[in-house]
């Protein structure tokens, strides 16, 4: 691991046939950072996360997570990370508590560890009321918290969140980001993808991805200054339309 970076990607590339979903991206994330991974639909955010978490093999480049190689040491990576996939993957016919117990068991937690972790999480995520409800029957905002609880109960050092706030109301989103801050303060590195531009403002650093390429990377405030825009949304639109113009020109 170099200079305290817990996530590193170097020219990371993934092709599906002729189509390049992720095109030689390079970035690094330091310990305790909240790193926002921005991009429109289909930009390649999920594909990048899947390569970092070891469930998709890169077709080019390399990377490491928690100091372990993403191609050769996937199993070691798995013990150090939490992952919340884009779909809020819960077993809908199990209760919230049963879901937690199931995922806890998979991470080899003892029932003692699990019950103390649960107590902590119910309090921190304010979800005591729903623990006996079926995961399929609770509102999306609560599903989202339950998935987060499942992803962090085994105390991972690095947390990967793939569009954790997709489809959730603004109030729940705000509450969710408060929790992310909390986690980051306790030393957990958070890698979070989103296409909500307002959420980008909450991140320590962001990268903007477009058509498989990272087109800019940096602190939101610095980026706004650099491009002389008021919001990250404006920066995003400016950069993406520029990138499109460039691709069109090079095509012609």
């Amino acid at each position: 691991m170099n200079n305290g970076n817990v996530i590193e990607a170097q020219n990371l590339t993934r092709k599906f046939g002729n189509f390049t979903a992720v095109d030689s991206v390079t970035f690094s994330v330091g310990k305790g950072e909240v790193f926002g991974f921005l991009g429109a639909n289909g930009a390649g955010k999920s594909t990048t996360i899947r390569m970092l978490t070891g469930i998709l093999t890169p077709t080019g480049g390399k990377g490491s997570v928690a100091g372990f190689d993403i191609i050769r040491e996937q199993e070691k990576i798995r013990r150090n990370i939490g992952y919340m996939s884009q779909k809020f993957s819960l077993y809908e016919d199990l209760t919230v508590e049963e879901n937690l117990a199931f995922y806890g068991g998979i991470y080899g937690m003892s029932s003692k560890e699990m019950s103390s972790a649960r107590k902590r999480l119910y309090e921190r995520l304010n979800m005591g009321d729903i623990r006996r409800r079926l995961a399929g029957s609770i509102p999306l905002g609560w599903k989202q918290r339950t998935s987060l609880a499942c992803a962090i109960q085994h105390n991972p050092r690095i947390l990967f969140l793939d569009e954790p706030t997709g489809g959730v109301d603004p109030l729940s989103r705000r509450a969710f980001w408060d929790i992310i801050y909390d986690l980051s303060e306790s030393g957990i590195t958070v890698f979070v993808t989103t296409h909500y531009m307002d959420e980008a403002e909450y991140c320590g650093r962001i990268s903007i991805m477009h058509a498989g390429k990272i087109i800019t990377i940096g602190n939101p405030t610095v980026l706004k200054k650099e491009y002389r825009k008021k919001t990250i949304e404006d920066v995003f639109i400016y950069l993406v339309s520029n990138a499109d113009v460039q691709t069109n020109q090079s095509n012609n």
């Binding site: 978490t53 469930i55 990370i81 996939s85 819960l90 991470y107």
Partner: peptide, 13 residues
């Protein structure tokens, strides 16, 4: 389909 498989794949199981 429901995505729990992806969740399990990133776990140490």
């Amino acid at each position: 389909e429901i995505g729990t498989l992806e969740q399990l794949m990133v776990s140490p199981i």
